[in-house]
C-alpha cells in the first residue's frame, strides 16, 4: 500500500458501505413504519405513550434497568418466552414506534418486561411494583433512594401514597415511606408495558397443511 489517497478512500468507503448497508438499509425498511389501523376495532395500534410513562422510560434508562431486563419477546418456538408468560406473540418493530428511548436490553438476569402489565392470570399493580422497588427481590437490588422517609407531624394523617410495609421493613413510628416523583413515573411506565394487539406481521408463518404432514411423517 503505497498510495495514501487510495488507502484513506478505501477506509472511508468501507465505513460508508457498512453504514449504508446496515443503518440506511434498515432505516429504508422501518423508518416510515406507521401505526396499524384496525377497522373492526376502530382504533390504531400501538397507542401513544402517556406523558408520565414516557418520563418513566427515561428513569428506567437512567437506572440502567436494561442491564438486567430485556423488553423483547422472542417468537414461540425460539426460546420459551411464551411459556414463561412474557407474551403470546413475538415483539415486532411496530411495537416500539412511539417510544422515545426503546430499551430492548441485552441480558436476562431478570425477567423480560415487554408485557409486564399484561401478565396472565394477574399482573402486578402499582403498589406491588412500588413494594418490589423498595424491598428488592432475590437477585434484584433495592431502589430505596427512589423513596423518601418522612416524619409525620403530631396528629397528621399519613399520605395516601405511603407504602404499606410490614415486618422488618416497617418504618419507625411517626414516619412514613412515600415514593418520589421518579418512582411514580417509573411505575407509570412499567404499568404501560403491554402489547395486546396482534399485528399481521406478528403472526408466525404456518406452512400449508400438506407440507406440515410431510414433515410430521419424517
Amino acid at each position: 500500500m503505497k498510495n495514501n489517497v487510495i488507502f484513506f478512500l478505501g477506509l472511508a468507503s468501507a465505513l460508508a458501505i457498512s453504514w449504508a448497508g446496515i443503518v440506511l438499509g434498515s432505516n429504508a425498511q422501518l423508518g416510515s413504519l406507521a401505526p396499524f389501523y384496525d377497522d373492526s376495532e376502530g382504533a390504531a395500534f400501538p397507542a401513544r405513550m402517556a406523558g408520565a410513562a414516557a418520563q418513566g422510560q427515561l428513569v428506567y434508562r437512567d437506572m440502567g434497568c436494561a442491564s438486567c431486563h430485556t423488553q423483547q419477546v422472542r417468537r414461540p418456538g425460539f426460546g420459551v418466552d411464551k411459556e414463561r408468560g412474557w407474551g403470546d406473540r413475538q415483539s415486532v418493530a411496530r411495537d416500539y414506534i412511539y417510544q422515545p428511548a426503546p430499551q430492548l436490553g441485552l441480558s436476562r438476569v431478570g425477567p423480560d418486561l415487554a408485557n409486564l402489565a399484561d401478565r396472565k392470570p394477574s399482573a402486578l399493580d402499582a403498589s406491588d411494583l412500588l413494594h418490589l422497588l423498595y424491598a428488592g427481590a432475590p437477585g434484584m437490588p433495592t431502589y430505596r433512594f427512589l423513596f423518601e422517609t418522612r416524619t409525620l407531624g403530631v396528629g397528621a394523617q399519613p399520605s395516601e401514597k405511603a407504602l404499606k410495609l410490614v415486618g422488618a421493613l416497617e418504618p419507625k413510628a411517626g414516619t412514613e415511606v412515600v415514593p418520589t416523583p421518579e418512582a411514580e413515573s417509573l411505575v407509570a411506565y412499567l404499568l404501560s408495558l403491554k402489547n395486546p394487539y396482534t399485528y399481521p406481521e406478528a403472526v408466525p408463518f404456518t406452512p400449508p397443511a400438506g407440507e406440515g404432514e410431510k414433515e410430521g411423517a419424517k
Binding site: 484513506f8 477506509l11 446496515i22 432505516n27 422501518l30 430492548l104
Partner: peptide, 30 residues
Amino acid sequence: FLFPWLLSIVHVMLFSAPVRGVLQPIVAGW
C-alpha cells in the same frame, strides 16, 4: 482515522436527530 467518523455518525443518529423505535438499537449495535 475512523473513530471520529463513527462517533459523529452515531451522535447525529442517536442524539441530535434520533431515529425511531428499534432503529436506535440497530444503530447502537452497528
